[in-house]
Design a binder for these strands. Structure first.
Lengths: 162, 162
DNA sequence: GTTGAAATCGTATCTGC
DNA sequence: GCAGATACGATTTCAAC
């Protein structure tokens, strides 16, 4: 769980990650079949990927509507006073509606991605963000999500002999 | 795995989702301890959450740098010809560098989030996007990611008696 | 990396609450 | 709908190769 060294991943490692990307609850047995190694070997690989920080965790993909957060939006934020110390990400971290926070190049300083229950909730959240971080905001509402959370390491087109 | 009904989730369901958000590879035994129910009950709940489409899958969180994609960017896209049929999300789906695609309210039609190896790769990807979907693009580079993939259902502050 | 044996876990099923 | 219990196959784990 430390920092990721620039040590390259071989085909087995990427195969394990690709298989996990399809189903992170897959058993070692299933992963072993996918990559063509023994269970123990896969287990060792997986432990190593985790301890090297290549894989930092496992999360379920949850339907936003089912958990009552059907409204998603991008919020760009810019400091009101460019002279003030800027620790917006830290200040905003307690707001659990914020799913992601990146600093960006461009007019704004940060890009947030948020999920809320309703327009009313979005208004409240934007107010909280403005107040907590002393920023102005520019909000872009997501009308429809075609896809998201796509795997960083796509499955190989066709593993030979499978 | 069908569509999500507006049937509300109770505290146990959200507890299971919260526990899985911390570790989606957790065993039923571990989940049962977390939510204070029997294994059989948790198993039934989990199956139901999956079949109802509340939980649609499980994915590993992978360090982008470790898999050779340290550069992330937001790309807004707008149609060159507003008269043409617009199926950009479909046309762009084969581009695996695209992690997310939303239609948005605002000047642009869609917001993409992409990950690539280098500025050179980003340039190539933007070209592909323009050509494939007949769009113009506006790219905002992510300089730093403070957090992302935060859980939709945060863990309860302190489960009583645990 | 592999094999194999022991401990743990997932699953199915049943009884009773 | 849940707890508890049984039973069996699957899975994880780890020591030895």
């Amino acid at each position: 769980m430390v920092d990721a060294k620039p040590e390259p991943l071989d085909a087995v490692d990427t195969g394990i990650i690709a298989a996990l990307s399809l189903d992170a609850r897959a058993t070692l047995t299933q992963l072993a079949e996918q990559v063509g190694l023994s269970i123990s070997a896969v287990q060792a690989r997986l432990r190593r990927l985790e301890s090297r920080g290549v894989i930092t965790g496992y999360r379920p993909t949850v339907d936003p509507e089912a958990v009552g957060k059907p409204l998603a939006a991008f919020i760009e934020i810019s400091p009101l006073d460019p002279a003030q110390p800027d620790n917006a990400p830290e200040l905003l971290e307690p707001l659990s509606e914020i799913e992601a926070c990146h600093s960006i190049a461009g007019e704004a300083s940060y890009m947030l991605f948020v999920r809320v229950a309703s327009p009313r909730e979005l208004e409240r959240l934007i107010g909280q963000i403005r107040q907590a971080a002393s920023v102005r905001t520019r909000t872009t509402i997501a009308l429809q999500t075609f896809y998201e959370y796509r795997p960083l390491v796509p499955a190989a087109s066709t593993p030979p002999g499978l």
